[in-house]
Nucleic acid binder design. Structure first.
Lengths: 187, 187
DNA sequence: TGTGTGATTGACTGATCAGTCATTTTTTGA
DNA sequence: TCAAAAAATGACTGATCAGTCAATCACACA
């Protein structure tokens, strides 16, 4: 049997995706096959459970996206690596993707958690910064381009999920949506 | 004194923006200066209050954005009209903008309400459809381009709100963010 | 087998909340 | 001026929920 803490997080992700963050801790515990007392042994408050869920998802994304990237790659290569890696991860883990967006948008995450989550993807920020400094990208704040990429990635994923394309068309859309993004920010 | 129903909606928007959708009906009523019984005279359920808040915001956007658009304008002109109009509205009504995003993301809106809200902006969809058909825009589903524009607009607004630019720089960013969007979808 | 330790349990509590309704207040218009 | 209608009130209810804790269980080691 999987680590109980991990199993509770997985169960919470499933229920958050189905019913939103408002699901009761009792239901999460029951669905996970433990008593609600046990849930509170692992997560002292519901807030800490929510934060743990978010960080767990972000770390999972990092594990699946960052390894394919290198310091020696160009900005465009890094961004495309993130693009393809994230979309593939999101299609393989639709609920995780959905919950990650949900928690961020619903403003239920502690400030510390948001900060920790950002720190995971420092490489991306660094590459974009260099791209702007070297005038390869439009002269906009790096934060802005970051948010832009996240927003456009979400739209691309939502589209791919809605119309279940075969893998050829999916790959085509990954390139196509990336081109839309890249043409937008290319200097 | 303003129409009570309108006043309750305005109060709800303020509280939703400050504390999320989870604020109690009692607090909304009290903040609006009426009893909670009165709130339920105007909105039989909290759900209907939430839906009314959303539709009220969308109609406000439409009133501020649609009048400047005409059937005879090009796709680009229409999209830029929406771009500038929406950003100006959002900067003048930051809480409304925030709540509109919050309600959509938190998945607390009824299906009927989402449909009604979409119908308000039919002109935009029609223009984009023609643009794609006439190969002025990249060959992507109109829905996709719609979502893309909404997402990028949100990012642009968030940026302008974070760094309170003077009106010259703000206008520059409106054009700049639009160019990023347009260069992405221009065929 | 016996004992001590840490994990697990679930009934319980106090707080909160959406929604009700009998009563009171205000408005209307004859 | 007054009676009927409409609007407003707020105490109340039943349900739900996060979090607690005394009791129980499972297991390691003597």
């Amino acid at each position: 049997m999987k680590d109980k803490q991990t199993h509770l997080i997985d169960t919470a992700i499933n229920l958050f995706a189905r019913d939103g963050v408002s699901v009761s801790t009792a239901r999460i515990a029951s669905e996970a096959g433990v008593s609600n007392g046990t849930l509170f042994n692992y997560f002292p408050t519901k807030q800490q459970l929510i934060d743990s869920v978010y960080l767990s998802i972000k770390e999972d994304i990092a594990r699946n996206v960052l390894p394919s990237l290198g310091q020696d790659m160009s900005v465009k290569e890094v961004m495309f690596g993130i693009w393809r890696g994230y979309i593939q991860w999101a299609l393989a883990n639709p609920l995780h993707h959905e919950v990650s967006i949900l928690l961020k948008a619903a403003m239920v995450l502690s400030a510390a958690t948001l900060e920790r989550a950002d720190a995971i993807f420092e490489l991306k920020v660094a590459k974009l910064r260099k791209g702007v400094e070297q005038h390869q990208l439009v002269d906009l704040p790096v934060d802005y381009i970051c948010e832009l990429s996240t927003a456009q990635l979400s739209v691309a994923v939502a589209f791919l999920q809605r119309f279940k394309l075969d893998s050829v068309d999916a790959s085509k859309h990954i390139h196509c949506s990336f081109d839309v993004f890249w043409n937008g920010i290319n200097a």
